[in-house]
């Protein structure tokens, strides 16, 4: 999120986030407007190291909302359950932007807060700006990336901003000069009633992969056209020949579970910025291609010459991947391409 707030009165920004998300959002608010008065509502009690960091995060105040009885078991707390407490406190606070992380929990929190406050919501804003008349305008992605929408409003609004996706909507890393003007503040802890209507019975981690696709210089992407594990092995071999990271489309990860979910590219996954992207059996729906816009060169391998990706690539190799992928891996090796 970026902002341009030249010669505007000091803005009030309420950051509402889980302990580990706070610092990044405060940096975001302050980079948008260095003079903003940032107030934090932290959903849940931070561990000692995070608490220490929060005292110097640049906010003017940090209120920690701690769960009242019944205290949830460790790991079964939900940030969503603080919505009524947050809404109550915000209703009595100076109006301003309410900034929430664009995560699954954040989306719910943002929409519920906006409803309780009777105000607008800008979900996953990529920029927010003050208007000369005191109103606001923002931009966000529409049609899964096929378009950008400009919005305006007056008064209060809840804004969620995308975290960790790369690109203009991304949050800067928490250490990007967050120790703003305010100096250290004391954390104030308030015990609040939670919304206990939705109860967590268990939480399990999905298979994760510490891969950072956004840093890869070459990416080979597996689409649903890769139909068997033998075919997948061919594509993996091409990735090895190219020294590329293996990525996939959403259904390959979410439906087939062939690759960890961290490896899918698109509006709800990763954005990549490689020199070379090779899409194998990828149709090229906009929900996917929005994540490969910044690729310098896009290659498509597809049996269907009219697939959408063929119209959005630099080089379209038409044919069966089972035939073309091994040939390409061989040619890349024969050419002695540095990986």
């Amino acid at each position: 999120m970026t902002a341009d707030t030249t010669a505007m009165p000091t803005d009030v920004v309420h950051v509402v986030a889980e302990p580990h998300e706070v610092a990044g959002l405060v940096v975001l608010a302050l980079s948008a407007d260095p003079t903003a008065a940032v107030h934090v509502m932290c959903l849940g009690v931070p561990d000692p190291a995070t608490a220490q960091a929060l005292t110097g995060c640049g906010a003017m105040s940090v209120v920690v909302l701690a769960a009242g009885a019944p205290v949830p078991s460790p790991g079964l707390d939900r940030p969503e359950d603080y919505v009524p407490a947050v809404a109550e406190r915000l209703a009595g606070a100076t109006p301003g932007l309410v900034l929430v992380p664009a995560t699954v929990s954040g989306w719910e929190i943002a929409a519920r807060l906006a409803t309780r406050l009777g105000c607008g919501l800008v979900s996953e804003a990529t920029s927010v700006r003050r208007l000369p008349d005191g109103g606001w305008c923002a931009e966000r992605t529409l049609y899964a990336g096929a378009a950008v929408q400009g919005l305006e409003w007056h008064g209060r609004a809840v804004v969620s901003a995308a975290a960790g996706r790369g690109g203009p909507g991304a949050l800067p890393p928490p250490d990007a000069g967050g120790a703003g003007s305010g100096g250290p503040v004391a954390l104030e802890t308030v015990v609040v009633d939670r919304d206990t209507r939705v109860r967590v019975t268990s939480r399990t981690s999905r298979e994760r992969d510490a891969v950072d696709l956004s840093a890869a210089s070459r990416v080979v992407c597996v689409g649903m056209g890769v139909q068997t594990l033998d075919d997948l092995a061919l594509v993996e071999d091409l990735a090895r020949a190219l020294g590329a990271e293996l990525a996939c489309t959403r259904p390959v990860a979410e439906d087939r579970g062939w690759l960890p979910v961290d490896r899918y590219i698109g509006i709800s996954g990763a954005s990549v910025h490689p020199d070379l992207y090779v899409g194998v059996g990828v149709s090229g729906q906009v929900q996917h291609t929005v994540g490969i816009r910044d690729a310098r060169t896009v290659v498509a391998i597809n049996t269907d010459a009219s697939a959408a990706l063929m119209g959005q690539c630099d080089h379209g190799l038409v044919g069966d991947l089972r035939e073309l992928v091994p040939l390409l891996a061989g040619a890349v090796r024969a050419a002695g391409v540095p990986s």
Binding site: G120, L121, V122, L151, E152, H315
Partner: peptide, 16 residues
């Protein structure tokens, strides 16, 4: 509460 002021499309510039 919010008003849409414009919708601008994105066009890929690739050699195809």
């Amino acid at each position: 509460r919010t008003v849409v002021t414009r919708v601008t499309g994105y066009a890929a510039e690739r050699s195809r």
